[in-house]
Design a protein around this nucleic acid. Structure first.
Length: 406
RNA sequence: CGGGGUGUCGUAUAGUGGUAGUACGCAUGCUUUGGGAGCAUGUAGUCCCAGUUCGAUUCUGGGCACCCCGACCA
C-alpha cells in the first residue's frame, strides 16, 4: 500500500491524557482512533493487525474442530432472566425499545444465545461433542475502562463454547483448547511471556484457567512456578496455601500480568436453565455439559504493544504486523521498482512514497513498527538497505534477494 | 462507585479579569532531501450551562468528558 494514500497520519506528540503505552503508540502511529473511553475505531493499519490476529485465532479454533458462527449483539432480556443474570451481571448494558418498550441487553458474552441455540440441535449423544465459536463485539458497561485497549467497553472477542456428554469428554476438549491457546499466543509473539494460570472458577467450578502475559501494565498479580511453567492468580493463592498446584513447590515468583485468554468449565450452569438435554446410549435423558473459552482481541493487540515496543514506537511480531515491511524511498519514485516487484511476488509492503524528509520517514517507520525496513535511495544504488525493527545494523542486499528476507 | 488530576486552533502546549501566544500540522511559493530541514505569507482555538462583573478563557457554582489510584471484573 502506498503510504501517500493512507488517510490516517502519524502524530508527532503523545496524545493528551493518555498514560498507557499501547494507547499512546497506537493512537500516534494511526492504528486506532479513540471515540470515547474504552471505545475505539480501528483505522486501516489497526484493522489489518486485528485481521491478522483474528485469522490466527480462527485457524487454531478450526484446527480443534470449532465451527464458526455469528451471534447477535442485540439480545432479549428474557434469556438473561432465564439464567438469573439480568440483575446479577453488573456490567450489563440494558436499554429499551423506544417503540415497543421491550427490554434488551447488549451482549457482554453469549452463553444466553449459544445455549438455547445448541439446544435446538442437540438431541442425542450422537450429536456430541460439538464446539462452536465466533469472533464478535462484546459490550460491557465497565465502571472504569482504562489502559487503552486493555479494558474497553466495546471490544472484539473470540468466544468458543463446547458441549459434551460427560465430564471426561469436557476435560479432554478443555485440554485441546489449552494447547490451541498456547499456539495462538506463540504465533502472536507473546508466548514466552504468557503463562497458563490457575484462577477462581466463580460459581461454576473450583478453578478456571487464564492465560496471563507478564507486563507492568497488567491488572492482575500472579505467582509463577518456573519449574512447571505455570502460574497461580492471586485470587486463589491462599486457597492453594501458596504452593504450585502441579508440583507443590512453595518457591513462586510474583509478577504483574494481563489476562489475555481464559478457559472455563461451565458444566451445567447454562445447559440446566435452558434445558439442554440429550438421550444417552441407554435412552436415558442427561444434561449437556458445557465449557467456554475466550480471548479478547483488542486486549491481545494492546498487550502485544505493551510487551513489544521501544521509545521510538511499536515493534510488531511478524505474524500480526499490518505489512511485512516498510519500504522507504528517499527521492521521488526511487522505491517504485521494488514496490512493484514485490507486489508481483505477492508481497504487499507499506510503501512510503510521500514527499517527506528522510528524518520524518524514518521516525514514522520506527513508530509504525513494521518488522523490516527497506530503504531505497541515491546512496543504495542498485541495492536495498534492509534493517530489522528493533535492531541497529542494516545491510545492503540485491533487489532479487529482498523477498527471501520477508 | 470512592479519591485525585486535567479540559485553550487539527495535534501538543503557554498565558491573562480588558486585543489569546508558541511549536508542529495544513495551504501557497521558493530552497532543501540519510534521522521530524529552512525562509516567507496564510489558515485556525478558550468543553457546556448559569452566576459575579462594565467586561469571564481566567473567579464561583453546576454539568459533561478524559486520564490516574482504589473498589469491581461472571
Amino acid at each position: 500500500m502506498r503510504q501517500s494514500k493512507l488517510f490516517s497520519k502519524t502524530q508527532r506528540s503523545d496524545p493528551q491524557n493518555e498514560e498507557s503505552v499501547n494507547a499512546k503508540l497506537l493512537i500516534r502511529a494511526g492504528y486506532v482512533d479513540k471515540v470515547m473511553a474504552g471505545v475505539y475505531t480501528f483505522l486501516p493499519l489497526g484493522k489489518r493487525v486485528m485481521a491478522n490476529i483474528e485469522n490466527i485465532i480462527r485457524e487454531e479454533m478450526m484446527a480443534i474442530g470449532g465451527e464458526e458462527i455469528f451471534m447477535p449483539s442485540l439480545q432479549p432480556k428474557t434469556n438473561w432472566e432465564t439464567t438469573g443474570r439480568y440483575n446479577a451481571y453488573d456490567t450489563l448494558f440494558k436499554f429499551q425499545s423506544f417503540y415497543s418498550k421491550t427490554d434488551y441487553v447488549l451482549g457482554p458474552t453469549h452463553e444466553e444465545i449459544v445455549s438455547p441455540l445448541l439446544g435446538k440441535f442437540i438431541t442425542s449423544y450422537k450429536d456430541l461433542p460439538v464446539a462452536v465459536f465466533q469472533i464478535q463485539n462484546k459490550f460491557r458497561d465497565e465502571k472504569r475502562s482504562k489502559s487503552g485497549l486493555l479494558r474497553g467497553r466495546e471490544f472484539l472477542m473470540k468466544d468458543l463454547y463446547s458441549f459434551h456428554a460427560d465430564e471426561k469428554d469436557l476435560e479432554k476438549f478443555y485440554e485441546k483448547v489449552r494447547k490451541a491457546y498456547v499456539k495462538i499466543f506463540n504465533r502472536a509473539g507473546i508466548g514466552k511471556l504468557t503463562y497458563y494460570t490457575y484462577a477462581s472458577g466463580g460459581t461454576f467450578s473450583k478453578y478456571s484457567h487464564e492465560f496471563q502475559t507478564l507486563t507492568p501494565a497488567g491488572e492482575d498479580v500472579i505467582y509463577i512456578c518456573d519449574k512447571c511453567r505455570i502460574a497461580v492468580n492471586r485470587e486463589v493463592i491462599d486457597d492453594l496455601h501458596g504452593s504450585c498446584p502441579e508440583c507443590g513447590s512453595k518457591t513462586l515468583r510474583e509478577e504483574k500480568a494481563i489476562e489475555v485468554g481464559n478457559i472455563f468449565p461451565l458444566k451445567t450452569r447454562f445447559s440446566s436453565p435452558f434445558g439442554l438435554k440429550f438421550s444417552g446410549t441407554n435412552g436415558q435423558e442427561n444434561e449437556v455439559l458445557m465449557g467456554c473459552y475466550g480471548i479478547g482481541l483488542n486486549r491481545l493487540m494492546g498487550t502485544i504493544v505493551e510487551v513489544s515496543h521501544d521509545e521510538k514506537g511499536v515493534i510488531w511480531p511478524k505474524a500480526v504486523a499490518p505489512f511485512p515491511a516498510h519500504l522507504v524511498e528517499l527521492g521521488k519514485g526511487k522505491g517504485r521498482r521494488l514496490y512493484e516487484q514485490l507486489a508481483k511476488a505477492g508481497i504487499e509492503v507499506l510503501y512510503d512514497d510521500r514527499d517527506a524528509t528522510a528524518g520524518e520517514k524514518f521516525a514514522d517507520a520506527d513508530l509504525i513498527g513494521l518488522p523490516v525496513r527497506l530503504v531505497v535511495s541515491e546512496k543504495t544504488k542498485d541495492k536495498v538497505e534492509v534493517k530489522k525493527r528493533g535492531e541497529k545494523n542494516s545491510k545492503l542486499v540485491s533487489y532479487g534477494s529482498v523477498r527471501k528476507l520477508l
